[in-house]
């Protein structure tokens, strides 16, 4: 039976990972960081990325990792790198020293000059064939003009001028905030347990209340539909956050926010964006290409 997978998209990469893997640690720096994956059985894998100006020697990179993670490998000479069993999986070179050593896979992305490094558990032929290789082979680059973010149940895309500024991951409550080079802000939220979140309030009551708690002034509330889901669309203004706008308290008046309730998934999603005067906002369909909106 084929393994159920889901999309993962983060800085520089996109993979299909097993559906039961959950991200249990993350970094928000696009130059160096890691994501860790676990299931109820424990740690499954870690993918690490780091800026690297030149193409590194992959086998030396693998030996360095083994030296850092295995007491037995600490004293091994550079020649031991030749003992690492390797095979290709897509753009990755997968390598291991035997059944007691962790399996790893390394690839260098020429265009963003990023080294990607996967570390899995101890080498196991079956896990390698059924799980690890398909992950590595599913690699897609994520460094174009449009960057996709698919993590913690969220899935959207943004122009590469938007940088991740803040991220909070709590149980059933995820928030990611981006800011573009022209100071436009885009914030994404995903909540679970909608009954407890909404507490019998309609979306038209809950969302304006929530935005007010974020310092927004509500201009207009409109019932809407997002891909067949009950939704609400709000226009709002907020005190400017940069330079003179902040100093003199001039509001940015072009705020647009959407909130929709996915009843099948039992999740509530929100997308808010605002920009300094005369700066364009993103279109909903550019951020969520598969969504259809209407009233």
């Amino acid at each position: 039976m084929a393994l159920q997978t889901r999309q993962l998209a983060w800085f520089h990469f996109q993979f299909r990972i097993p559906a039961e893997w959950e991200v249990t640690a993350y970094s928000i720096d696009d130059l160096a960081g890691r994501l860790e994956f676990s299931t109820r059985k424990g740690f499954q894998a870690r993918v690490r990325w780091e800026a690297c100006r030149q193409t590194p020697d992959i086998q030396t990179t693998m030996l360095t990792f083994l030296r850092q993670n295995m007491p037995d490998a600490e004293s091994q000479s550079p020649a031991a790198a030749m003992n690492i069993n390797t095979k290709n999986a897509g753009i990755f070179l997968m390598g291991h020293l035997g059944e007691n050593a962790p399996c790893q896979a390394v690839a260098y992305l020429e265009q963003p000059k990023i080294l990607l490094h996967w570390a899995f558990g101890p080498y196991d032929e079956r896990a390698a064939e059924d799980v690890w290789m398909p992950i590595l082979q599913s690699f897609q680059p994520n460094d174009g003009e449009i960057i996709r973010y698919a993590i913690y149940g969220m899935d959207f895309q943004l122009p590469n001028s938007y940088q991740l500024e803040d991220m909070k991951v709590l149980p059933a409550n995820v928030m990611m905030a981006f800011e573009s080079s022209n100071k436009a802000q885009a914030t994404f939220r995903r909540w679970g347990m909608p009954d407890l979140l909404l507490q019998e309030r309609s979306l038209e009551v809950f969302f304006p209340w929530f935005l007010r708690t974020q310092g927004c002034r509500i201009e207009n509330v409109e019932k809407s539909v997002v891909s067949g889901m009950e939704a609400v669309k709000i226009s709002y203004e907020k005190r400017g956050e940069h330079q003179m706008d902040r100093f003199i308290g001039r509001p940015w008046k072009n705020g647009k926010a959407w909130l929709w309730h996915d009843r099948d998934e039992m999740r509530v999603y929100a997308f808010e964006q605002i920009a300094p005067p005369k700066r364009p906002l993103l279109k909903m369909t550019d951020v969520f290409p598969h969504f259809r909106t209407g009233t």
Binding site: E22, S38, T39, R40, L170, P171, A172, G192, M193
Partner: peptide, 15 residues
């Protein structure tokens, strides 16, 4: 019951 993931549910229950 709440359509949560294993780790979401674990974190909430632990607390």
């Amino acid at each position: 019951r709440h359509k949560l993931t294993f780790f979401e549910s674990r974190a909430l229950l632990t607390q």
